[in-house]
Design a protein around this nucleic acid. Structure first.
Ligand code: MN
Ligand code: MN
Ligand code: ZN
Ligand code: ZN
Lengths: 150, 150
DNA sequence: AGAGTATTGTGTATTATTCTCAATAAGTGA
DNA sequence: TCACTTATTGAGAATAATACACAATACTCT
Protein backbone atom coordinates (compact mmCIF):
# COMPACT_ATOMS: atom_id res chain seq x y z
CA UNK A 1 0.00 0.00 0.00
CA UNK A 2 1.98 2.93 -1.34
CA UNK A 3 1.23 6.44 -0.20
CA UNK A 4 -0.85 8.75 -2.35
CA UNK A 5 -0.94 12.51 -1.97
CA UNK A 6 -4.23 12.06 -0.17
CA UNK A 7 -3.18 9.42 2.30
CA UNK A 8 -0.07 11.42 3.10
CA UNK A 9 -2.19 14.49 3.65
CA UNK A 10 -4.51 12.55 5.93
CA UNK A 11 -1.66 11.30 8.08
CA UNK A 12 -0.13 14.74 8.32
CA UNK A 13 -3.34 16.56 9.11
CA UNK A 14 -4.20 14.02 11.76
CA UNK A 15 -1.19 15.30 13.67
CA UNK A 16 -1.86 18.95 13.02
CA UNK A 17 0.70 19.10 10.23
CA UNK A 18 0.31 20.12 6.62
CA UNK A 19 0.80 18.67 3.21
CA UNK A 20 3.08 20.85 1.14
CA UNK A 21 4.28 20.46 -2.44
CA UNK A 22 7.78 19.89 -1.07
CA UNK A 23 6.69 16.98 1.07
CA UNK A 24 4.73 15.45 -1.74
CA UNK A 25 7.61 15.71 -4.19
CA UNK A 26 10.10 14.28 -1.74
CA UNK A 27 7.90 11.27 -1.07
CA UNK A 28 7.56 10.75 -4.81
CA UNK A 29 11.30 10.62 -5.26
CA UNK A 30 11.54 7.81 -2.74
CA UNK A 31 8.62 5.97 -4.27
CA UNK A 32 10.30 6.03 -7.66
CA UNK A 33 13.68 5.02 -6.32
CA UNK A 34 14.97 1.71 -7.69
CA UNK A 35 15.36 -1.20 -5.28
CA UNK A 36 18.63 -1.22 -3.45
CA UNK A 37 19.12 2.53 -3.69
CA UNK A 38 19.45 4.87 -0.74
CA UNK A 39 19.63 8.66 -0.72
CA UNK A 40 21.51 11.01 1.54
CA UNK A 41 20.14 14.49 2.17
CA UNK A 42 22.55 15.82 -0.40
CA UNK A 43 21.67 13.12 -2.94
CA UNK A 44 18.05 14.06 -2.54
CA UNK A 45 18.88 17.74 -2.91
CA UNK A 46 20.70 17.08 -6.18
CA UNK A 47 18.05 14.73 -7.49
CA UNK A 48 15.32 17.31 -6.89
CA UNK A 49 17.46 19.99 -8.42
CA UNK A 50 17.98 18.01 -11.60
CA UNK A 51 14.37 16.96 -11.93
CA UNK A 52 13.33 20.61 -11.80
CA UNK A 53 11.86 20.69 -8.29
CA UNK A 54 14.49 22.56 -6.30
CA UNK A 55 13.96 22.35 -2.53
CA UNK A 56 16.19 23.90 0.09
CA UNK A 57 18.54 21.72 2.09
CA UNK A 58 16.90 22.83 5.32
CA UNK A 59 13.54 21.60 4.16
CA UNK A 60 15.07 18.36 3.00
CA UNK A 61 16.65 17.68 6.38
CA UNK A 62 13.43 18.60 8.14
CA UNK A 63 11.32 16.47 5.86
CA UNK A 64 13.31 13.25 5.92
CA UNK A 65 13.49 13.48 9.68
CA UNK A 66 9.77 14.03 9.90
CA UNK A 67 9.01 11.15 7.59
CA UNK A 68 11.35 8.84 9.44
CA UNK A 69 9.54 9.63 12.67
CA UNK A 70 6.23 8.95 10.99
CA UNK A 71 7.53 5.58 9.84
CA UNK A 72 7.33 6.53 6.16
CA UNK A 73 11.06 6.53 5.60
CA UNK A 74 13.76 4.51 7.27
CA UNK A 75 16.95 6.14 8.38
CA UNK A 76 20.07 4.15 7.63
CA UNK A 77 23.45 4.82 9.10
CA UNK A 78 26.05 2.97 7.13
CA UNK A 79 29.69 3.77 7.75
CA UNK A 80 30.07 6.98 5.79
CA UNK A 81 29.40 9.68 8.31
CA UNK A 82 26.00 10.69 7.02
CA UNK A 83 22.55 9.19 6.96
CA UNK A 84 20.78 7.57 4.08
CA UNK A 85 17.07 7.18 3.57
CA UNK A 86 14.80 4.80 1.75
CA UNK A 87 11.12 4.00 1.76
CA UNK A 88 10.10 1.98 4.79
CA UNK A 89 8.34 -0.88 3.12
CA UNK A 90 6.50 -3.72 4.82
CA UNK A 91 6.82 -7.42 4.10
CA UNK A 92 7.74 -8.70 1.53
CA UNK A 93 9.88 -5.73 0.52
CA UNK A 94 11.35 -5.17 3.94
CA UNK A 95 15.04 -5.98 4.04
CA UNK A 96 18.34 -5.60 5.85
CA UNK A 97 21.90 -4.58 5.06
CA UNK A 98 25.32 -6.19 5.05
CA UNK A 99 27.99 -3.48 4.86
CA UNK A 100 31.72 -3.45 4.31
CA UNK A 101 33.07 -0.95 6.82
CA UNK A 102 36.07 -0.26 4.62
CA UNK A 103 34.58 0.41 1.17
CA UNK A 104 30.88 0.72 2.08
CA UNK A 105 29.82 -1.99 -0.35
CA UNK A 106 26.28 -2.86 0.65
CA UNK A 107 24.29 -6.03 0.14
CA UNK A 108 20.61 -6.27 0.92
CA UNK A 109 18.91 -9.38 2.20
CA UNK A 110 15.50 -10.33 3.51
CA UNK A 111 14.34 -12.04 6.64
CA UNK A 112 10.79 -12.18 7.90
CA UNK A 113 11.81 -13.80 11.17
CA UNK A 114 13.64 -10.60 12.09
CA UNK A 115 10.64 -8.52 11.20
CA UNK A 116 8.55 -10.69 13.51
CA UNK A 117 11.09 -10.41 16.28
CA UNK A 118 11.13 -6.65 15.88
CA UNK A 119 7.37 -6.38 16.18
CA UNK A 120 7.23 -8.76 19.10
CA UNK A 121 9.97 -7.00 21.01
CA UNK A 122 8.62 -3.50 20.62
CA UNK A 123 5.09 -4.64 21.38
CA UNK A 124 6.22 -6.39 24.54
CA UNK A 125 7.78 -3.13 25.78
CA UNK A 126 4.81 -1.03 24.76
CA UNK A 127 6.79 0.79 22.07
CA UNK A 128 5.26 1.90 18.80
CA UNK A 129 7.40 0.30 16.10
CA UNK A 130 8.79 2.54 13.38
CA UNK A 131 11.50 0.47 11.75
CA UNK A 132 13.56 -2.57 12.47
CA UNK A 133 16.83 -3.15 10.70
CA UNK A 134 19.57 -5.70 11.04
CA UNK A 135 22.90 -4.08 10.39
CA UNK A 136 25.83 -6.37 9.68
CA UNK A 137 29.21 -4.70 9.80
CA UNK A 138 31.82 -6.75 8.01
CA UNK A 139 34.74 -6.66 5.60
CA UNK A 140 34.15 -7.64 2.01
CA UNK A 141 36.33 -10.15 0.15
CA UNK A 142 38.21 -7.47 -1.78
CA UNK A 143 39.00 -5.38 1.29
CA UNK A 144 40.16 -8.48 3.15
CA UNK A 145 42.82 -8.97 0.50
CA UNK A 146 43.95 -5.37 0.45
CA UNK A 147 46.72 -4.71 2.93
CA UNK A 148 46.00 -1.05 3.29
CA UNK A 149 45.85 0.11 6.87
CA UNK A 150 42.67 1.39 8.46
CA UNK B 1 37.46 -14.68 26.32
CA UNK B 2 38.28 -11.15 27.39
CA UNK B 3 41.28 -9.36 25.98
CA UNK B 4 44.48 -9.09 27.99
CA UNK B 5 47.23 -6.60 27.27
CA UNK B 6 49.12 -9.45 25.62
CA UNK B 7 46.38 -10.70 23.36
CA UNK B 8 45.62 -7.15 22.30
CA UNK B 9 49.29 -6.61 21.55
CA UNK B 10 49.42 -9.80 19.51
CA UNK B 11 46.45 -8.78 17.39
CA UNK B 12 47.85 -5.33 16.81
CA UNK B 13 51.36 -6.46 15.95
CA UNK B 14 50.02 -9.04 13.57
CA UNK B 15 48.78 -6.14 11.47
CA UNK B 16 51.92 -4.05 11.84
CA UNK B 17 50.37 -1.88 14.51
CA UNK B 18 51.53 -1.15 18.03
CA UNK B 19 50.26 -1.52 21.53
CA UNK B 20 50.32 1.80 23.35
CA UNK B 21 49.37 2.66 26.91
CA UNK B 22 46.51 4.69 25.50
CA UNK B 23 45.05 1.74 23.65
CA UNK B 24 45.41 -0.50 26.64
CA UNK B 25 43.72 1.95 28.97
CA UNK B 26 40.86 2.57 26.57
CA UNK B 27 40.18 -1.14 26.23
CA UNK B 28 40.18 -1.43 30.00
CA UNK B 29 37.53 1.22 30.35
CA UNK B 30 35.23 -0.75 28.09
CA UNK B 31 35.98 -3.99 29.86
CA UNK B 32 35.00 -2.45 33.17
CA UNK B 33 31.88 -0.83 31.80
CA UNK B 34 28.65 -2.04 33.40
CA UNK B 35 26.18 -3.95 31.25
CA UNK B 36 23.83 -1.75 29.32
CA UNK B 37 26.20 1.20 29.21
CA UNK B 38 27.56 2.80 26.07
CA UNK B 39 30.17 5.51 25.72
CA UNK B 40 30.47 8.29 23.20
CA UNK B 41 33.91 9.63 22.34
CA UNK B 42 33.31 12.50 24.68
CA UNK B 43 32.06 10.23 27.47
CA UNK B 44 35.23 8.22 27.13
CA UNK B 45 37.33 11.38 27.15
CA UNK B 46 35.73 12.50 30.39
CA UNK B 47 35.92 9.10 32.00
CA UNK B 48 39.64 8.84 31.27
CA UNK B 49 40.16 12.36 32.48
CA UNK B 50 38.50 11.66 35.81
CA UNK B 51 40.24 8.33 36.35
CA UNK B 52 43.60 10.08 35.95
CA UNK B 53 44.52 8.77 32.49
CA UNK B 54 43.97 11.78 30.26
CA UNK B 55 44.04 10.96 26.55
CA UNK B 56 43.51 13.43 23.74
CA UNK B 57 40.23 13.47 21.86
CA UNK B 58 42.08 12.80 18.62
CA UNK B 59 43.52 9.61 19.98
CA UNK B 60 40.18 8.58 21.35
CA UNK B 61 38.48 8.97 17.99
CA UNK B 62 41.30 7.11 16.26
CA UNK B 63 41.30 4.32 18.78
CA UNK B 64 37.62 3.53 18.93
CA UNK B 65 37.49 3.50 15.15
CA UNK B 66 40.46 1.17 15.02
CA UNK B 67 38.99 -1.16 17.58
CA UNK B 68 35.63 -1.21 15.86
CA UNK B 69 37.33 -2.25 12.64
CA UNK B 70 39.18 -4.96 14.48
CA UNK B 71 35.90 -6.25 15.87
CA UNK B 72 36.86 -5.42 19.46
CA UNK B 73 34.30 -2.69 19.90
CA UNK B 74 30.92 -2.25 18.33
CA UNK B 75 29.86 1.07 16.97
CA UNK B 76 26.31 2.03 17.78
CA UNK B 77 24.39 4.81 16.13
CA UNK B 78 21.35 5.60 18.15
CA UNK B 79 19.39 8.71 17.31
CA UNK B 80 21.48 11.36 18.99
CA UNK B 81 23.81 12.52 16.28
CA UNK B 82 26.92 10.86 17.60
CA UNK B 83 28.26 7.35 17.91
CA UNK B 84 28.40 5.19 20.99
CA UNK B 85 30.70 2.29 21.65
CA UNK B 86 30.62 -0.83 23.75
CA UNK B 87 32.59 -4.04 23.93
CA UNK B 88 31.72 -6.42 21.12
CA UNK B 89 30.93 -9.52 23.10
CA UNK B 90 30.08 -12.94 21.74
CA UNK B 91 27.21 -15.17 22.78
CA UNK B 92 25.75 -15.16 25.41
CA UNK B 93 26.45 -11.48 26.08
CA UNK B 94 25.71 -10.35 22.56
CA UNK B 95 22.58 -8.23 22.42
CA UNK B 96 20.50 -5.76 20.45
CA UNK B 97 18.81 -2.42 21.02
CA UNK B 98 15.29 -1.04 21.03
CA UNK B 99 15.41 2.75 20.89
CA UNK B 100 12.88 5.54 21.27
CA UNK B 101 13.67 8.01 18.50
CA UNK B 102 12.17 10.84 20.51
CA UNK B 103 13.80 10.53 23.93
CA UNK B 104 16.54 7.99 23.16
CA UNK B 105 15.41 5.59 25.84
CA UNK B 106 17.18 2.33 25.07
CA UNK B 107 16.29 -1.23 25.95
CA UNK B 108 18.64 -4.13 25.34
CA UNK B 109 17.51 -7.60 24.40
CA UNK B 110 19.12 -10.83 23.32
CA UNK B 111 18.57 -13.14 20.39
CA UNK B 112 20.87 -15.89 19.30
CA UNK B 113 18.86 -16.55 16.15
CA UNK B 114 19.89 -13.13 14.87
CA UNK B 115 23.49 -13.81 15.69
CA UNK B 116 23.28 -16.99 13.65
CA UNK B 117 21.61 -15.23 10.78
CA UNK B 118 24.32 -12.59 10.84
CA UNK B 119 27.10 -15.15 10.65
CA UNK B 120 25.35 -17.15 7.97
CA UNK B 121 24.67 -14.12 5.80
CA UNK B 122 28.15 -12.67 5.93
CA UNK B 123 29.72 -16.08 5.41
CA UNK B 124 27.55 -16.72 2.39
CA UNK B 125 28.79 -13.49 0.79
CA UNK B 126 32.39 -14.10 1.74
CA UNK B 127 32.46 -11.18 4.17
CA UNK B 128 34.45 -11.24 7.40
CA UNK B 129 31.92 -10.54 10.14
CA UNK B 130 32.69 -7.76 12.59
CA UNK B 131 29.39 -7.07 14.30
CA UNK B 132 25.74 -7.72 13.77
CA UNK B 133 23.13 -5.60 15.48
CA UNK B 134 19.38 -5.40 15.23
CA UNK B 135 18.27 -1.83 15.62
CA UNK B 136 14.63 -1.20 16.41
CA UNK B 137 13.50 2.37 16.02
CA UNK B 138 10.30 3.03 17.88
CA UNK B 139 8.44 5.42 20.15
CA UNK B 140 8.27 4.64 23.85
CA UNK B 141 5.02 4.65 25.83
CA UNK B 142 5.72 8.03 27.41
CA UNK B 143 6.58 9.75 24.16
CA UNK B 144 3.47 8.30 22.53
CA UNK B 145 1.39 10.13 25.10
CA UNK B 146 3.21 13.42 24.77
CA UNK B 147 1.69 15.66 22.14
CA UNK B 148 4.83 17.59 21.48
CA UNK B 149 5.65 17.94 17.81
CA UNK B 150 8.66 16.29 16.25
C1' DA C 1 -12.21 34.99 1.73
C1' DG C 2 -9.76 35.67 6.18
C1' DA C 3 -7.54 34.21 10.50
C1' DG C 4 -4.31 31.53 12.54
C1' DT C 5 -0.26 29.04 12.36
C1' DA C 6 2.77 25.44 10.21
C1' DT C 7 6.29 25.56 6.82
C1' DT C 8 9.68 27.38 3.78
C1' DG C 9 14.20 29.44 2.26
C1' DT C 10 18.27 32.04 3.45
C1' DG C 11 21.83 32.61 6.08
C1' DT C 12 24.24 31.48 10.17
C1' DA C 13 25.57 28.49 14.09
C1' DT C 14 26.71 24.17 16.05
C1' DT C 15 29.16 20.13 16.74
C1' DA C 16 31.00 15.57 15.80
C1' DT C 17 34.73 13.96 13.53
C1' DT C 18 38.91 14.23 10.66
C1' DC C 19 43.22 16.24 9.28
C1' DT C 20 48.03 18.22 9.73
C1' DC C 21 52.34 18.01 11.52
C1' DA C 22 56.07 18.10 14.66
C1' DA C 23 57.40 15.41 18.74
C1' DT C 24 57.44 10.94 20.86
C1' DA C 25 57.93 6.15 21.60
C1' DA C 26 56.92 1.04 20.23
C1' DG C 27 58.87 -2.73 17.80
C1' DT C 28 62.86 -4.94 15.68
C1' DG C 29 67.19 -6.73 14.94
C1' DA C 30 72.20 -6.30 15.62
C1' DT D 1 71.22 -2.70 25.32
C1' DC D 2 71.24 0.49 21.59
C1' DA D 3 70.15 2.46 17.54
C1' DC D 4 66.77 2.69 13.48
C1' DT D 5 62.48 2.81 11.43
C1' DT D 6 58.02 4.29 11.46
C1' DA D 7 53.47 4.05 13.90
C1' DT D 8 51.33 6.93 17.18
C1' DT D 9 50.31 10.84 19.92
C1' DG D 10 48.57 15.65 21.17
C1' DA D 11 47.33 20.32 19.87
C1' DG D 12 45.06 22.92 17.01
C1' DA D 13 42.91 23.94 12.68
C1' DA D 14 39.71 22.27 9.15
C1' DT D 15 35.69 19.87 7.49
C1' DA D 16 31.13 18.53 6.87
C1' DA D 17 26.61 17.10 8.35
C1' DT D 18 22.93 18.90 10.52
C1' DA D 19 20.30 22.23 13.33
C1' DC D 20 18.70 26.90 14.21
C1' DA D 21 16.61 31.79 13.74
C1' DC D 22 13.52 34.47 11.57
C1' DA D 23 10.93 36.94 8.23
C1' DA D 24 8.08 35.67 4.27
C1' DT D 25 4.86 32.38 2.52
C1' DA D 26 1.04 29.27 2.10
C1' DC D 27 -1.86 25.38 4.16
C1' DT D 28 -6.17 24.38 6.70
C1' DC D 29 -10.33 25.39 8.76
C1' DT D 30 -14.24 28.24 9.46
MN1 MN E 1 18.01 -0.80 1.45
MN1 MN F 1 24.37 -2.33 24.42
ZN1 ZN G 1 35.07 -3.58 1.10
ZN1 ZN H 1 10.60 8.16 24.34
Amino acid sequence: MAYTANSLKAELNERGWRLTPQREVILNVFQNLAEGHHLSAEDLYNELQSQGDPISLSTIYRTVKLMARMGILRELEFAEGHKHYELNQPYPHHHHHLICVKCNKTIEFKSDSILKLGSKTSEKEGFHLLDCQLLIHAICPQCQRSLLPG
